[in-house]
Every structure is written in structure tokens, then in C-alpha cells.
Design a binder for these strands. Structure first.
Lengths: 334, 334
DNA sequence: TTGTACGCGTTATCAA
DNA sequence: TTGATAACGCGTACAA
């Protein structure tokens, strides 16, 4: 059993109230007893119980962080950002994985509620709408990262998909490409729509025509190799010199298909991805891609939590991406 | 404020004791009132407070996990393993980074102690010995991962460096290599000694001579490129056809130096690493390496914690590695 | 300047 | 079958 203020009180021959005050530097305690008690506390190895303090204060200085899985590299850096800000502000972080399983995600949130966390941060949830119905029960602010669901008590921090996609497509345009394709992903409808919108904006801004036949939608069920091959077939028929892909995995699948088929990247086809996952740097050729500031997303989410807990007004935030130019893009061949 | 059993008691016109019992399925409460109270609790959105339960039970069902940084890919999978087992067993995990800063590491442990975690798991700590002195204060089991410090209350789970290194060297021997070098790292003395021991065992088992001039020790201060070049110089003078490296970063540095110098890998020099970091798969050629079962390390550490909390005897554990054969090894040239 | 008494939400003991 | 009371460790209003 850890040492309590009562133990110290007994040892010092004072009441536990005096000990409590002395340790907290209360002005109404004589300098002498304060010093004596502090020395004693030090010697006895006293550490206050955050559990008892939490019960009394009705506040735990704790937040719950829900991630999909630690195997997802995206998630990991977000965790770093959240934890960094939390630690600096004196908050502790509960971490739990949902493994992309809605039931587990509910269970995790339930557990956080039992633990009386002061706030919850959720990354890449597929069921943001679920929270709306449970929010009256969990009387706690919930910040969603990269998951824009509307609704009261629901706050969000997200990457600027439109701006990011625009950046990637502009890069291709500046290289001299004119027939640029968009390779989407239908099982992420919202962000897919936004990234496609960024693509279209960039095309329009450059005065390039929007050709619907240049929008490709691989079948999500297939693995990235199959998808890459299928998409490549279509791309080759369309006489496209460059493509912007919904994400890096899609882009890498396509790049591998090109290698299989003997299509030179970037000479014959330039490819731009989105996310900047670790693999993007290591594939051959290294992938030009739109970088998501993951650590910053985590930081912002936690800062938003702190603001909310301080009773401040907050509004949803988006974070700008930047472009990582690598080896998968070049001017068109002819 | 969340709903408490007192609120329910008031609404049901019974004492809070009855509510507590009804919710916990105590046998001495009539089936009727039990049903009535449970229904009420459901409607009012009651969730018991783990904080209050913890205070009473003197047990939080919480553990603290100290990592270096989320930027370290090794760490991340360990977290996954710990969290998986913890969640299954009904424990919640506090996660905190030390950023390899001893002062922060102390602060983190101190915070965990304040939170009254039931146990602490520490990955890749450089100051395991620090815990020995603080252990009387933190009356809690501490499990170290990949950091074998001896001492009471200190438990450890670690990868089997000797076995792993042996595996890597055996592979080279089976390919037909006879002059095999060991590239060490002096700033990790303990694991370096064990991996070197595995190298020596494998050589001896195969009846090969142990030539001290085949042991290379790059200067740790230099970056991996410099180290790679320096080591390569020495290797070329020694007429070695294959090397086993302390870790993947060292191996990759060497591989890059080979590319710079026009030394063909694996034709002219076979290279084996240790760790199996993500990059190992992506470099050219992909690195043959000894895989550390990171997730499993985390699982074992948490299982050890559960055993300890159940009052069972535990002993330190090591986990076997396996070999990932990729493109950086081949039979010797001549 | 210090101490007494109470309450935070829960469970356990004892009594009714 | 149910209820009153105490306790976990701490902070605070009030009293001395």
C-alpha cells in the first residue's frame, strides 16, 4: 500500500488536513511545519493518489484515444502528436484499438466512459455517426480525426483533402501534362469526393477540360495488385500521361502493375499518391505524393480538447498538406 | 455530471446499497426489484465509475506503458501486443513517451505511479538500472522489454539475440560462405555481445575458424552512411564474402555504401541484418534479416504482468526470432 | 495557524 | 429482502 497523507500526519503528529495544505503550499501553514512535513513526505516516498483526487475533483485529467490498429502507420504518428501535447499539459492518455470492428469501438468508448476520461479522440472511425446517438450518455467532448461527421458535441480535425489533391494535380500540370486521370476509391466516399474535387478544381484552374472518361474507380474488393492491373488497362486505352491517385496504396499498386507490364514510370506514366506512407519513400521509383501532417493532426486534436475543457469555443479545423516530389513524376514523354 | 447509483436509488425509491446489489446481480435482491432497477439504470444511462471502484478496491486495472517514441517502428508493434492482451483481460493502458530522455522517463514513471497503475511495462529503456533504486517507492511490478537489468521486482521479456544471430549466420554458412564477418555496434554493449556470441556459436558449430580480424566495429557517432563506407573499406581488405550485421540500419548503411562503390549485393557480398524493420523490405535489394517478433514481445510482457498480478511466480522470458530470407544473400561468387 | 467534519461514488459489513 | 454506516484518499468549508 502506498503512503497516504494520513500516514504522514501520524508521523508528524498533525492532522491530515495540515499535511495536505503543507504539500500544496497553502499560505496559512507555518513555514516551519511546511518544511518539516515536506521533508517527511519526501523521506516516506509519498506520491498523491490521482485516483482520490479525480474522485473529488470530478475530473481525471485523462483522455481516451481510440485508434484502429497500431499496424496502421497513419495512426501511429497521430498518437505521437496527441501524446506529446497531452503530456505537456499534464494529461495522461488511455490508448485502445478498435481493430476496425464497430462492436469493439463501442466497447472501447464505453470503457473510456467508465474510466471517466475528460475527453475522447477518435482516429479514422468508420462510424462517426454512431457517436451522435450515444453522446447524451457520454457527457464528454469527442474529437474526431479525419472523419467529418456533423452533429452536436462532435468536433473534428481533418486534413484538407481538396487542397492536397489540388497540390498534387497542379504539380502534374506544371510538369506539362494535359491528359491527367483520377484514380478513386469508392469505399471511402467522403474523402474520395473531396480529393476528386481538388483534382477537378486544379484542372479547371489550368483551363483543362474535365473528361469523365478519365475518372477511374477500381473495384475495392480486389487487392491492390489486381486493382492496379485493371486500372492500368483502362488508363492505357485513354491515352493518359499522368494520374493522381486517391492514396499511396492505390498508387503503388498501379506502379507495380506498370513494372509488370513494362510501362516506364515516370517516363511513360507519371503517378502521384496521397498520404505519404512509409513505403512511398522505399518503392522504386520513390513515389511523389501528398504528405499528410499526421503528427500535427494529433497535436491539433489534443489542443482542441484542451480548449474545450477550458470552456472555450472551438471550431472544426483542417490542416494543409504539402507535396513530396520524388521519382514517380516527370514531364510527359513527347 | 454522470448518473450515480444514488440518482438511481432516488428514482427507484430504494437505498443506493440496493441499487449497487441489483446491478451486480446479488442473490439477496428480489428478482422484481432487480429487474426494475436495471431497467431504470439502462434508461438513465448509468455507467459505474471506475474511479470510485479503483479507490475502494485499491486496484485500478490499469497499466502504464513507457515507450521511447512513436516514431520508432519497433515500439509501435510492441504497443499493439500489449494493448491487445490488456484489452482482452479488462485492463486499460496508459501510453507515454520518454523520447529517450532520462528525465522524461522518470517523470513518466512518476505520473504512472500517481495514477496508481497496477503495473508498468517499459520498452527499450536505456536506464533500466534506474528502476532498482526507485522500486521501494513504486510498489508495483515493472516488466522491461528488451532490456535485461537484474534486480528484485524487475522482470524482463526479451528477444533471443543469441538464437537470432545464430540463425542469420547459419543461413550464410548453408549458402556456402566461409569467411563471414560480424559488424557490431559498440553503444549497445549487451545485445551486441549476445549477437556476436550467436555469430561465434554458429561459426564454431560449422567448424569454421574464429578470426578476430573479421569483427568490425563502426564508430557509433557517425551516421549510417559514413559507417557503411568505413566498414566497407575494412571488409574489402579482409576478403570477406558475407557479413552479419548487428541490426538492419547498419546493414542498410553498408548496402548503400556497396551501391556507391559498385560492389554487387549479393553477388560480391551477402548481407544479413537483424530486427526486420519496415525499410528492410523496401530497400534494393530487399534485406535478408532476422525478424524480431515485436507484437509477441508485447503480448508476453502483458501476460507476464497478468501473472504477476495474480500472484503467480514468473521467470524472465526470451522469444525466438525467425529468418526472413530476401534478396541480399546468395551463394558466394567463385 | 491548525483541526474537525463532510463529500466525491462505490462496495462490504452488519443490523433490521 | 433491504437499509444504514463505514471506508478508500483527498481537498475544503467552517470552527477553534
Amino acid at each position: 500500500m502506498p503512503v497516504t497523507i494520513k500516514d504522514i500526519a501520524k508521523a508528524a503528529g498533525v492532522s491530515h488536513t495540515t499535511v495536505s495544505r503543507a504539500l500544496r503550499g497553502h499560505s496559512a501553514i507555518s513555514a516551519e511545519t511546511t518544511a518539516r512535513i515536506r521533508k517527511l513526505a519526501q523521506e516516506m516516498g509519498y506520491t498523491p493518489s490521482a485516483v482520490a483526487q479525480s474522485l473529488l475533483a470530478q475530473r481525471t485529467r485523462t483522455i481516451g484515444l481510440v485508434i484502429t490498429t497500431t499496424a496502421d502507420p497513419f495512426t501511429v504518428q497521430v498518437v505521437g502528436g496527441v501524446e506529446y501535447v497531452a503530456q505537456t499539459a499534464g494529461y495522461s492518455v488511455f490508448l485502445s484499438s478498435s481493430h476496425n470492428d464497430p462492436d469493439r469501438e463501442i466497447a472501447v468508448v464505453e470503457t473510456f466512459h467508465r474510466r471517466r476520461v475528460d475527453a475522447i479522440i477518435v482516429t479514422s472511425s468508420r462510424l462517426g455517426s454512431l457517436y451522435k446517438s450515444r453522446l447524451d450518455k457520454i457527457q464528454v467532448p469527442i474529437v474526431l480525426i479525419n472523419n467529418q461527421e456533423e452533429g452536436e458535441y462532435l468536433y473534428s480535425v481533418a486534413v484538407d483533402d481538396v487542397q492536397g489533391a489540388q497540390l498534387g494535380v497542379q504539380h502534374l500540370i506544371e510538369l506539362g501534362h494535359r491528359r491527367i486521370g483520377y484514380v478513386g476509391l469508392t469505399n471511402r466516399p467522403k474523402s474520395n469526393r473531396r480529393r476528386r474535387q481538388g483534382y477537378e478544381t486544379a484542372m479547371k484552374n489550368a483551363g483543362l477540360p474535365l473528361d469523365p472518361s478519365l475518372i477511374f474507380s477500381p473495384i475495392p474488393d480486389h487487392d491492390i495488385f489486381e486493382r492496379g492491373h485493371e486500372t492500368l488497362e483502362q488508363i492505357l486505352q485513354r491515352n493518359v500521361t499522368a494520374v493522381f491517385c486517391y492514396n499511396d496504396l492505390t498508387a503503388i499498386g498501379l506502379s507495380l502493375a506498370c513494372r509488370d507490364r513494362g510501362i516506364a514510370v515516370p517516363e511513360r506514366l507519371s503517378i502521384v499518391g496521397f498520404d505519404d506512407i512509409d513505403a512511398a519513400m522505399y518503392v522504386t521509383p520513390p513515389l511523389t505524393t501528398v504528405h499528410q501532417p499526421r503528427f500535427e493532426l494529433g497535436q491539433l486534436a489534443m489542443e482542441m480538447v484542451l480548449d474545450l475543457l477550458n470552456g472555450q469555443e472551438v471550431q472544426d479545423k483542417t490542416v494543409a498538406c504539402h507535396l513530396e516530389v520524388r521519382g514517380s513524376t516527370a514531364p510527359p514523354a513527347h
